[in-house]
Each structure stands twice: as C-alpha cells, then as structure tokens.
Amino acid sequence: MSHFQTDTEISKQRCRKFRKRILEISQQVQALHIGSAYSCTEIVDCIYYCLMHKDGDGQFLDTFLMSKGHGCMIQYAILEEIGILSRQDMDMYCKAGGRLGCHPDYGNPGIAASTGALGHGLSMALGMAYAEKAQGKNSTVYCVVSDGELQEGSTWEATLMASSLKVNNLVAFVDNNDFQSLGRTSITHPSFYPVVEKYLSFGWEAIEVDGHDTQAIYAAVKSRKGDRPLMVICKTTKGKGVSFMENVPIWHYRSPNPDEYRQALAEIGANET
C-alpha cells in the first residue's frame, strides 16, 4: 500500500503537471479533447495513484477502463509519467507512424479496452469484473463514464446487469460536467438529475462528490460497503483549471492558439510543477 499517494498537495501538484503536459501536446496537433480530459483529471489521477493496487513487481493488479474514451489524454499523460507509455509515444500522438490516437486503442500499453463510441465501456468493465471474480481474483475494475454516456441505453443495460450479478468489484465514476456537444445535459434532459437516486434504485451503492477533490473521491471509494457495484457521481467542471475553457463547449475538441496556450499555462500554475 506504500505506493498510494493520497496527500492533497502532492495530488494537486501531479494534476497540475498532467494538465501542463496535455497543454504541451495541444500545441502539436489540433485533435485534442482538452476540456474532457481536464474535467476528469483528478478522477483518473486518483484511480492510478490512490486506488489501484500493484504487485511486488509494480504491475497493476486492478484494471482501469476509460469508457469516455475522448478524455484519454489524461490517461496517456499518467501512463507516460509512470513509464508505461514513452515520450516518443506522446510526441507521435495522432501523427503518421504513431500509435496513440484521440481514443484509447486496445493493444497499446496500459489500455484495457478500445473505447470512443459512447456506451460500450461499462458493459466491458462489467464483464471484466465478473471474470476476475469468477476466477477468484481479489481485484477491482475501475471505469470512468461520461454523463453523456448515461444517455446511452446500453449503459443502463450494464447498470441493471451489474446489480443483478452482484458484481461488487466494479467501481465506476461519472464525470458529471453537465456538458455534451450541444450544450448543458441538464437542459437537454431536464430529468437527468438526480443521478445518485437513479443508481441507488438500480441496486448500486452511489455517492456524489466534488470530482476535483482527490481526497473526496478516494474517501467515497474507501468508505463503500462493498457488497454491490459502486457509482461515484463526480461533480466536475469541463475544462477545469483554465478560465476561458471552463464550461465552454468548443473546448471539448479545439486546441489553444499560442496566446491561449500561454494564458492557460499560467492559469493552471504550470510554473509550480
């Protein structure tokens, strides 16, 4: 357990570093879901640095599946930091001859499944968790879904089934930034909220936390009863950390120009990394 790094200041420092790295990559290519990566930075950081167990050789015993594949830049940045992806991999992101694209590809180091089309990840995570439980492994499958994915019927098929199968080694997180391509989720679907009650009624444990508070995310997982799947609804801000990106849908996809890049670096506190 010694590798768990839950100290608040250290977590913040890591997340600043990852946001800075994503900004650096944003200057290489135009294709980047920067706002989506920033909204789940603390969630994915917490999974890798605070929740997933390793064996004596440093290999992860638990599994992480990024169902909201468009947010994968944060996963790539972390995988680079921990040595699973190389700097060359990142330099070649979305370039001819590179192996990393805008969505995670199974077969690349550290990638548990191919995602990108929404509504696939939770079902696969469920199958993975079920398999590991049936095989007698004491492991957990962590999965991050977007709030947009909660509009996919397939996600609710998986939600119902995870409960019916009593898959208690499945821990999922909703990156609830309340944004989708054409605007606020809460405006598109006035009945979208409350989310916690929906998951509770489907037989899951469910809790809502501040999705940018690593300690709160960690505590939500660690305090679970553990007899059923857990959904952590993480209230987040799309584009978190850069004022002109926050809650502005265009930053779902575009990359900053040089002036915006410099301002963004300053706002995330890049000098402190």
């Binding site: 469920l126 199958g127 398999a131 089934m161």
Partner: peptide, 14 residues
Amino acid sequence: QVMIGIAAGLALKG
C-alpha cells in the same frame, strides 16, 4: 448490447 459487452469483457480477461 450488454450481452456482447460482457462477452467482450470476459474475453479481455482470458
């Protein structure tokens, strides 16, 4: 849909 997704997850775990 979840039938195929679960089958994929099972296969991903061997």
